[in-house]
Simulated scan of single mutants.
Amino acid sequence: MSTNDDYYIEILSNISVYLYRYGNLAIYILGNIGNLLSILIFSRKPWKKNVCVFYFIIFLILSCIYLNSIILGTALINGFDINAQNSNALLCKLLHYVGIFSSTLLPTVIILASIDRLLISSQNVETRLYSSKRLAYFSISSSTLFWLFFHIHLLIKVNIQQIGSSDWICDYDLSGSYIDFVNYSLMTFNCLFCLLMIILSILTFKNVRYIRCTRRHQRKQIRSITKKDFQLIRCLFVLVIVYISVSVAPALNSVYTTATKNQLRTPLQDETVYFVANLFDFIYFTFYCSNFFIFLIVSKAFRHELKRIVFKLFGNDLVVLTEKENNQNNNENLNVTVVNTIEIPY
């Protein structure tokens, strides 16, 4: 190995360490603060009754779980060389189990929220009735139980493995078939998640577009959808776009690493593959601290609620529109005449 190779290996290794030491900690801090603020805002009375907000709260809780398990764990392991999981089998198993469980349940919740927005924007009255808290509770409970049982093999196969005469590491079972199963199954799920999100977003977009066109030209409603509902749909669209953008590259890189693991590489090539994997993982981790900023940028109602909290925190009063005034302003902005009849075109 040449001196130049040693130089580049050291540079790539140092970048990876600093990425986990400072980048992951920034994501961890911003993500937890942003998620907790978002949960506080969505838990307030004007938001609690909305079914989509319920899904968002579950989504934010899962984001906090992932931040405090995988993202914090990788920051300590790769950034500060603190390997507590290598000395405790239970901690080792829980770290992998909780991390993968939350990373698969979270996109499932996004899909369930997308289904709810598709139902609420439907032209059919009976279809819209399926958007309910009861269905949301059932869907979340069923999904949680499914992923809890599906990933239970991690509690058996993940353990502290011996990789040398005196080296121990928390990792999957060292048999190649099991590692292939984990990597390919996660990639398959990720592809299915992304595909379903795209399909549901397109269908919801068509429904919303039809409602806007109907309101603009016919001045009659298929359903009274508030401006806040439209803002939640836009927030969901942005969440889907960001999730797909940051999750595709790590999944493909994982497949590539698994498929080429038996190929002979130089130390520089090994370090390059490791660095690329770390970079893609870091990009994926940014999704878990972006939720608050997405809600803040996309939703005017969210910003207004945040202002209320800040003003109350400093002892000032913020003038808040009543619900009736909000509805009137929403209708004026959308050029809608509210009527009690329902007209469904055939």
Rank of each mutant, 00 (worst) to 15 (best):
P250C: 02
H96G: 00
S141P: 09
W168V: 01
I152D: 05
T272Y: 04
R219I: 09
E305P: 04
S224M: 03
F275C: 12
K300E: 09
H96V: 02
N50P: 05
V51W: 15
V338L: 13
L232N: 15
F287N: 05
Y28R: 05
Q161I: 04
F149V: 02
S245N: 11
I77S: 06
E323N: 15
S131F: 02
R44A: 14
L195K: 01
V208L: 15
P250F: 00
I179Q: 13
I344P: 12
L91I: 14
F56E: 08
I120C: 13
F230G: 03
P267T: 01
S299K: 09
Q263W: 13
I115C: 14
S299V: 00
M187D: 12
E126K: 09
T266M: 02
I163T: 15
P250Y: 07
S224C: 14
V339T: 13
I33M: 15
L252T: 11
S16D: 06
V273W: 08
L239H: 04
R219H: 13
L196S: 08
Y184A: 02
Y172T: 10
F193G: 01
V109L: 11
L36T: 11
Q218P: 00
A89V: 05
L334K: 08
V158D: 04
I41Q: 14
N327A: 06
G164M: 01
N159Q: 01
K220T: 15
Q328M: 11
Y346P: 05
H96S: 03
K157F: 10
L60S: 10
A113T: 10
I61C: 12
K220D: 14
S131R: 06
S177D: 15
V17I: 09
A84M: 00
R44K: 15
F42S: 07
L186W: 03
S114M: 02
L174K: 14
S38V: 07
L37T: 12
L145R: 00
F138N: 04
N4G: 01
S185P: 00
G23T: 11
R209I: 02
S102Q: 04
I156W: 08
I11R: 03
